[in-house]
Every structure is written in C-alpha cells, then in structure tokens.
C-alpha cells in the first residue's frame, strides 16, 4: 500500500487542503506568496502540492517545481515555514508520526528545486 493510500487517498487530501491553506494564509512568514485574487486556483495548486507530498499520483517534475518558484526569491525560512504548516496540518488530522516522517522525506526531496539551488 502506498503512502498516499495509507493516508486515505483523495478524500484525505480534500480534508487536509482546506486546513493547510488556512495555515499558510495566516502564517506571516509566507502568507504573501499565497494571497491571490483567484483563491480557487491557489487552492487547486495547494491540492496538487499535497498530492505530491503524500506521494500520490502527480506528474509534477523537479523542472516544474523549479519553474513555478523561480522568481519568488525564496529562502530556507520560507521553505521551513511551509513544511511546518504541513506537519501541523497532519498533526491536526491525527496522522501517525511514522507517516508524517515519510511525508517530510518526500517534501525535503523537493527543497533544492523549490529554492532553485
């Protein structure tokens, strides 16, 4: 069983994405990157991100990640803030620690692409 299935698949992402998006929108360290006049589109992007973080069916490649974040001048602090918000979301949903660890591993793998290193 994949991590994505263990976490509960599409239904779990739907539950998580609202909580996660609320967290980043109210997180002063990163909220400016998530403010958008088209919140529905932003919400869909968050879902794509979480699908990837859950190891689910996602065709996002490192190149896409790099391209999407290229002009944002992101730092380690930004990356860590989003990762923390994601972990807090999973804690809130009472996801087992070992599964959270797996999510963190996947997300950490994308760090260089996101920060354009």
């Amino acid at each position: 069983m994949s991590l994505y299935e263990k976490l509960g698949g599409d239904a779990a992402i739907n539950a998580a994405v609202d909580i996660f998006y609320r967290k980043v929108l109210t997180d002063d360290r990163v909220s400016e990157f998530f403010e958008s006049t088209d919140m529905e589109a932003q919400h869909a992007k968050q879902k794509a991100f979480m699908t990837m973080a859950f190891g689910g069916p996602s065709n996002y490649t490192g190149k896409d990640m790099r391209e999407a974040h290229k002009h944002m001048n992101l730092t380690d602090e930004h990356f860590n803030a989003v990762a923390e918000d994601l972990v807090a979301t999973l804690n809130e949903l009472e996801v087992a620690q070992e599964l959270i660890d797996e999510v963190v591993t996947i997300v950490s793998g994308a760090k260089d692409d996101v920060l354009n290193k």
Binding site: D10, A44, K45, K47, A48, T51, P57, N59
Partner: peptide
C-alpha cells in the same frame, strides 16, 4: 493542461456523453 493527474484542473472540457465522463469528474 498541467499535472495530467486529475489534480490541477486546467484541462477541463465539456461533453454530453454522461456515461463516458462520470469517472473523469472526481474532484
């Protein structure tokens, strides 16, 4: 089109063939 995994929803189209599209309406 974007993710091609049914997530980003950028490739939405329209069809009257209800039976053929039901499985492609998740989310």
């Amino acid at each position: 089109n974007g993710c091609r995994a049914g997530v980003c929803q950028s490739c939405i189209m329209k069809s009257d063939s209800a039976e053929e599209i039901t499985h492609a309406q998740i989310g």
